[in-house]
Every structure is written in C-alpha cells, then in structure tokens.
C-alpha cells in the first residue's frame, strides 16, 4: 500500500513516515497541499494521505476539497494529522471529506489503531 504524508514540518513528516513504513507502507511526502497535488497529478495516487492542517501555500482543508472534486482520486483515504484540535475544526474537516482525524500529539499506536478502523493495515498487526 502507498501513503502520501503531507506536512510542512520535515520532522513531523519523518515521524509519520517512519510509522507508516514500519507498518509496511510505501511512502512519499509533500511539504504542503500544492506539492501533494503535484504528486497526484503525476499519477502516483496513494491508498492513504495523512494531512496537516496549517501549511503554507495550500493548507490541508483546501487539499481535501481539491481531492474531493476529482472523481479519479475518490479511492484515496484522507486522514488529517494536525494540531488543530477543537470540536468545530474536526467537524469541518469531516464535512469537507476527510475520513479520519488524528490530533497532534499522537503516539504510533494511535496511527495504527486508526488504520485498523479504516481497514488500511497492510499486514496483520496484533493490536
């Protein structure tokens, strides 16, 4: 399975990527929504995108809306991974089309649990 990790922080991209690689994902990353759309337009459409909210150029919510407007990308599961943690923000992201929401700070187990809920654990991992 493939995952696209979108975050403006290189350290955070590393943390999320290494969790996903550990679970058996092939991972690419992007520093903001615009870079992520470039990857999709190249034809590299992942099973999963993890998406930060606050980023320069194109933020996570704009990215989610852009993905939603293209039927070719419908199979992609979108999981927000962000420090935005108010109730209303989560509702907004889900309404825009995000499937799941992980609030920073999170642990590796939290990512694994959410992927299990989404049926996106590439290999059988004992919970």
């Amino acid at each position: 399975m493939r995952a696209l990790v979108i975050d403006d922080s290189r350290a955070m991209r590393r943390i999320v990527s290494s969790i996903l690689i550990g679970l058996g994902y092939e991972v690419r990353d992007a520093g903001h929504g615009g870079e992520a759309l470039d990857v999709l337009n190249e034809g590299w459409v992942p099973d999963l995108a993890t998406i930060d909210w606050n980023m320069p150029v194109m933020d996570g919510l704009q990215f989610v809306s852009a993905v939603r407007s293209n039927p070719a990308w419908r199979s992609m599961t979108m999981m927000m991974v962000t420090s935005e943690s108010e109730h209303t923000q989560i509702v907004r992201a889900l309404a825009a089309g995000a499937h799941e929401y992980v609030i920073k700070p999170f642990t590796a187990d939290a990512i694994r649990d959410k992927l299990a809920l989404l049926g996106l654990l590439p290999q059988e991992v004992v919970l």
Binding site: S9, A11, M12, N54, T82, S83, E84, S85, E86, I103, K104, P105
Partner: peptide, 11 residues
C-alpha cells in the same frame, strides 16, 4: 513543530 503541537493544545 514542538511549539506548534503545544500551541494547538493550548488553543
């Protein structure tokens, strides 16, 4: 990024 995560929770 640490400030971002702490700040998000404070907010």
């Amino acid at each position: 990024e640490i400030a971002n995560v702490v700040g998000g929770s404070v907010k």
